[in-house]
Design a protein around this nucleic acid. Structure first.
Length: 657
DNA sequence: GGGCCCGCAGGG
DNA sequence: CCCTGCGGGCCC
């Protein structure tokens, strides 16, 4: 589920059913956690939480119920709903969203579940355009559908289990809905991009408890290898490592399978008397090694200890995390971080031996050897954060994008996609427009996989039609709705194919066709920006960013037509800055960037990249620009409220050679 | 800062 | 459903 949007001052009441936003509500009986009080949350925010029951049969029964509820819900045409029922419908769509999230995170799909709870029917019904389902829910449902179909509904991987006897089912259990308070998405610590992303601080029991958020999908730790985790990654608590899939347990030191071996272990100071850490070699003791008193026989191996034994046989690599904590201050282990946990890379379990503990009891100790070709531990140790790190997230003076709503037209791929990700990392809320709803949904799904809990939505808009003005109007109206009623910035990065052929082959038709996207659309975006970026007169920072290219400043043979439009766009930018004032209007002028835009000219991604690198190797920077590079220019123009009528150039020194 | 104790999340 | 655990807050 989405993290609830932050309401911006003066914005109209939120009408988006996916956003649970209840103004002036203090949840009774739930003391607000400290971290939430400290954050400038302007409204109390509530999220509904599903309880799907404990046993498998209870869960299945609830899934059937949720499915039935969604199917009836979709049969109601929303435009025929009376105004007094709108709120009820919103809640029911919100519950459907919760259900899909729950499904995604908690259920290992097998054909039996699909048949019994009608999963495929429910998902296809949700994605049916005729059903007026909220955009978020549609993209969620289609993403799940794609995933399940790709997995063939679990047929190939998971052995199916027989149906439970009917008497085991609990047909009368109702799904109960409790309420917990969530931090706003732009919370510097608990929000998107914060170090505690995916975790909630619960103080309802009178003490601080960190728990995983059920509404944000987390990464599975059951993977051998790095699991996409960068060496030296640092986590404040073990539960953060659990959320990011670095380690597989909230408390245990070993996470793994007793048959295929350990996925990850945590080296902590609590076992310092038994373990020995040489950095590249670690002697790591099995769970409970302190307790045994029998000198002849080790205590029965725990799951974790069994997993390490299995690792000796399978030689599957084990992720090693080193943990700080309060006791580590006096720790003799120089490899432990001063606090939190650091991912130190892959090790193999080479062997095991038996030793005696202080009680004279036998215990199993494993020898772990660090795999070669990884950044040395000592280097990771120097870059490892310390207790100051959490403060970094609190510095908001320069991050003016936190909580802002940014619409990126052309945000499903290429430079626009980079701008979306950069904005999300700056804790903004983003609505991206792709050329179709499908492309927008697909982009949103993959962005969410990379940025759990990110507030990003997708809208489809085909800008190639003659009705581009109305299409843009509709797009921005819809985007404003999705973003809580207001748009702060519009970024235009949409472009069509770069191939125009030789000048002598150019027909008037082809020139005018090229003019549509490169001349007409930017002008209309300017016109519509004036209409949709409301609130600038009241002092709120609003801006539009257009995209041109280095061909605007430096000619190149064969590019006359595109150069014409690109240079014209700089004039448009300057003049719109006057016409739209106090809305800021700027442009970014990138050189060649490695994006799919070039693919029309090349047969494959490899060929494209080779050609681009060949084209750019003579530049002072010696390489082709990545999307992440030029995205910085957009972020700058979004943040500098003093910049208007400017064109920011980022072109690898192309103008110098 | 040593130790007590609560309780989440995983796995059988 | 049970049990476990290289946490972590908090009390003294």
């Amino acid at each position: 589920m989405e993290v609830p949007a932050v309401s911006t001052a003066g914005s109209p009441a939120n009408t988006n059913p996916d956003i649970h936003q209840i103004e002036d509500v203090t949840p009774s009986g739930i003391p607000a956690p400290d971290a939430i009080i400290n954050v400038k949350a302007n409204v109390a925010q509530i999220v509904r939480v599903l309880n799907m029951g404990g046993t498998e049969s209870e869960k299945l029964e609830q899934m059937k119920k949720q499915g039935r509820s969604i199917l009836t819900l979709c049969r109601n045409k929303r435009d025929r709903i009376t105004p007094d029922r709108v709120e009820e419908m919103s809640k029911r769509f919100a519950d459907a969203t919760l259900y899909l999230d729950w499904l995604d995170t908690n259920v290992e799909m097998v054909p039996r579940i699909n048949t019994s709870a009608k999963i495929e029917l429910v998902l296809t019904t949700l994605t049916d355009r005729n059903n007026n389902v909220p955009e978020d829910l549609v993209s969620k449902a289609s993403a799940l559908l794609v995933k399940y179909r790709a997995e063939n509904w679990g047929q190939d991987t998971v052995p199916d289990v027989p149906d439970v006897p009917e008497e085991d089912a609990v047909p009368n259990a109702e799904p109960t809905i409790g309420e917990i308070q969530l931090p706003p998405a732009n919370d510097p610590v608990f929000g998107t991009g914060g170090i505690m992303c995916g975790i909630i601080l619960d103080t309802s029991n009178g003490r601080k408890t960190y728990r995983l958020r059920v509404d944000i999908p987390r990464k599975s730790p059951k993977v051998y290898g790095h699991n996409d985790i960068a060496l030296g990654s640092w986590y404040a608590f073990q539960i953060n490592a659990l959320f990011w899939g670095a380690h597989g347990a909230r408390m245990a030191g070993i996470a793994g399978s007793v048959t295929t071996g350990a996925w990850s272990i945590v080296v902590a100071s609590t076992y310092e008397d038994l373990d020995t850490d040489y950095g590249n070699t670690i002697y790591y003791s099995g769970s409970n090694s302190h307790d045994n008193k029998n000198p002849r026989q080790a205590a029965p191996a725990s799951q974790g200890t069994k997993a390490l034994h299995a690792s000796i046989t399978t030689q599957n690599p084990v992720r090693v995390l080193r943990s700080g904590g309060s006791a580590s201050n006096r720790s003799q282990n120089r490899y432990l971080p001063s606090c939190g946990l650091r991912y130190d890379g892959l090790y193999r379990v080479a062997s095991f031996r038996q030793r005696l503990n202080k009680n004279g009891g036998l215990y199993d100790q494993f020898k772990l050897e660090r795999l070669p070709n990884q950044t040395p531990v000592d280097e990771l140790r120097r870059s490892s954060p310390t207790t100051e790190q959490p403060e970094l997230g609190v510095m908001a003076k320069y991050n003016k994008l936190a909580g802002k709503h940014i619409v990126v037209i052309g945000g499903s791929k290429g430079i626009g996609r980079g701008v979306v990700e950069a904005a999300l990392e700056s804790q903004a809320r983003v609505t991206l427009a792709g050329s179709s709803q499908q492309s927008a949904d697909a982009a949103v799904a993959s962005i969410k996989a990379e940025y759990p809990g990110a507030e990003v939505r997708g809208v489809g808009c085909d800008l190639s039609r003659a009705t581009v003005e109305e299409d843009l109007d509709a797009l921005l109206t819809r985007a404003a709705e999705l973003g809580g009623g207001e748009i702060d910035h519009i970024v235009y990065t949409a472009a069509d194919s770069l191939t125009l052929g030789k000048l002598e082959d150019l027909t008037p038709d082809a020139a005018l066709k090229a003019a549509h996207m490169r001349f007409l659309v930017p002008v209309m975006v300017g016109k519509m920006a004036k209409k949709h970026l409301r609130g600038a007169a009241e002092g709120r920072d609003k801006s539009l960013i257009l995209t041109t290219g280095s061909i605007a400043s430096k000619p190149s043979p064969g590019w006359s037509v595109i150069a014409y439009f690109a240079a014209g766009l700089k004039g448009l930018t300057r003049n719109l800055a006057l016409d739209l004032s106090p809305i800021r209007v700027n442009a970014v002028e990138p050189g060649a960037v490695n994006t799919p835009l070039w693919d029309t000219a090349y047969k494959s991604v490899a060929e494209r990249e080779a050609a681009l690198h060949e084209m750019c190797k003579g530049l002072p920077v010696g390489r082709v620009a990545a999307v992440e590079d030029v995205a910085e220019a957009y972020v700058y123009l979004l943040r500098d409220t003093n910049a208007t009528g400017e064109t920011v150039q980022t072109r690898g020194g192309h103008h110098l050679v």
